[in-house]
Nucleic acid binder design. Structure first.
Lengths: 343, 343
DNA sequence: TTGTATGCGTTATCAA
DNA sequence: TTGATAACGCATACAA
């Protein structure tokens, strides 16, 4: 009752191991009757082929890895959900690795995955946007890699992103249209792919509207809530912006806390728009205007690209760009939208 | 440059494969110099021992599985984060499986894991609270299992939960203290472990206060947002409760939407308290009173129990109970709390 | 300290 | 249609 393997089954059935093995593989020729006998016995003893032995033999792990900067984050948990859904449908297992936004951990994870541990990798990058030739070694090992959202531009692999530049441009223009003259841009790291592109959209929208670009209004934040609270308090006190474009959700949250704390009224004194996957943005006080990325779809698309690469010999190198949605709410419009519908 | 294995390294170094193998294992005797030579050559060729071959040989996968009902949920993503953190520190890999709250998927995942795919499993259950003897087969295979939050009472394995009964009791009493006379209890499935226990706390607190228990005030909801919107709209219209205790976060969110939609004012017309891991509960409109579970800690504790079981021969059977925190906010107190601090 | 030989559980090739 | 055998890459018992 302890360990059941193909050998034990074979003994019990007076068959060879090869015949038993055949019962579990779709293709090979085998007498339907003996196959049935084997399967029923397998069921009785709750036999499952040893995954590691199969992998070693077949050099396929039926496993993919997801590497993300963080987990407790609406965007990533939705994206992972999408990936997991596709992987499961394909009969694949999903390993998950969290870098805590530390580039070295990303490198360490990748290094460990060189050994055939996984058939493919889906990653949202933690490092800056350049110089990652080490990743090309994955290609040498024939382990496909797909990026989503946060990408390395110098790596030539399939990518799924959103129209960050356009969204950022549109959000900035929206803030200008509702009367903002001094719009701050909150960013975690300008060298990151998304930080960079989103800032460009902000920059160009200002230029387009004839508003001078002021570097003091680009606020460099961190990933730490406490630090951001201080950074933003200082920035709001010194610069007195009348609009905020937050390049990631967490910075909008911090802005809310800081404004509540300093008695700055949203949207009367300052209007806020943020990139955010928060499903309950409309329930915030005030309802937060968002640029909402299709996180789940990003995940499913990334997974599908990976499986295309896995299933075909031809190299897949698509760069898919999905559209985000700008949803103006009270925090920028001042209009108390009726929260109708079902959420 | 393609495939590097222990044999290739051995050839290049004029050594035997066993010597090369030894260089990567901590214990075995080996000349420090040759070890250094091997390691440097390994680094140059970017060699990583084949995980599947090692596993097959050692019958240890250095991998654990997490099975959860859903992913895009603050509670579970925080808990998973905790588990992943501990696993990574121990040098373990983490597989993730999402059941979408479907019991059959849970069974299917477990079945697949019988084959030695993982060394241990951490699970939050999707099924009802009884009759899961099939899980005991895992024990026969010496694959330890640890439950967190949603448990099966009839399975004798380590568990980590929160003080749900006490929290529910305290939250109900809180609602009574702020003047509620007709408190509705929102639950997804009374047969689930947590639904059951939380309802008991609610029930007993009413009894304790001399308020008659009314089955019409126990609202059976689903996992679907649209359905819940209809169920709750109907319930609020027919029963006119003046208080709500939501047993899971999602039901509080739906309640907010329904109240906004029906023009029911929170907290003037109805007061709300909810089990919730939402970090920005204080930014909602109105700020939501919560029973906040230590989700991350639940994860780390569950992982630590699993590793204890993995590392010792003695069976581990602890049931750890962590404390949740009742945080009254505007939605139940009516007091517009100053959102100070840093969030 | 190093090398030889064997087996982990599976599947593929070949022969029967 | 079935069986014997070798090999996947690694780690250990044992011999040298």
């Amino acid at each position: 009752m302890d360990r059941v393997d193909i050998k034990r089954l074979a003994e019990k059935l007076n068959l060879s191991t090869s015949t038993v093995s055949r019962a579990f593989r779709g293709n090979s020729d085998i007498n339907p009757e003996t196959k049935a006998r084997i399967l029923s016995m397998a069921k009785e003893f709750n036999y499952q082929p040893n995954h590691y032995a199969s992998n070693l033999r077949e050099k396929k792990s039926k496993t993919i890895a997801i590497i993300v900067p963080e987990l407790a984050n609406n965007f990533f948990s939705q994206a992972i959900h999408g990936i997991e859904r596709v992987a499961r449908d394909k009969g694949y297992h999903t390993l998950i690795y969290v870098t805590d936004d530390e580039y070295q951990k990303e490198v360490a994870f990748i290094d460990k995955l060189y050994n055939g541990r996984v058939d493919g990798i889906i990653m949202s990058a933690s490092g800056e946007a350049n110089d990652h030739q080490y990743l090309n070694r994955l290609g040498n090992k024939h382990i496909p890699l797909v990026f989503f959202d946060r990408v390395y531009d110098d790596i030539n692999v399939p990518k799924v992103t959103t129209d960050d530049y356009e969204s950022s441009f549109a959000a900035t223009r929206h803030l200008i249209e509702v009367g903002c003259k001094k719009i701050a841009f909150l960013v975690v790291n300008k060298s990151l792919s998304i930080g960079n592109v989103r800032m460009q959209g902000y920059h160009d929208a200002l230029k387009d509207a004839g508003i001078p670009y002021n570097t003091h209004l680009v606020i460099d934040c961190s990933n730490d809530y406490d630090e951001n609270f201080d950074i933003l308090s200082k920035a709001l006190n010194e610069q007195h912006p009348d609009g905020i474009l937050a390049s990631v959700e967490r910075l909008a949250i911090s802005s809310y806390y800081v404004c509540h704390n300093l008695g700055i009224r949203i949207p009367d004194d300052i209007k806020i728009v943020s990139f955010s996957s928060l499903e309950i943005a409309s329930l915030l006080n005030p309802a937060l205007s968002t640029i909402t990325q299709p996180a789940f779809d990003l995940g499913t698309n990334a997974a599908e690209l990976l499986f295309r690469a896995l299933e075909s010999d031809a190299p897949v190198n698509d760069h898919l760009v999905l559209s985000s949605k700008l949803i103006p709410r009270t925090s920028s419009t001042g209009v108390k939208t009726h929260i109708g519908g079902k959420g």
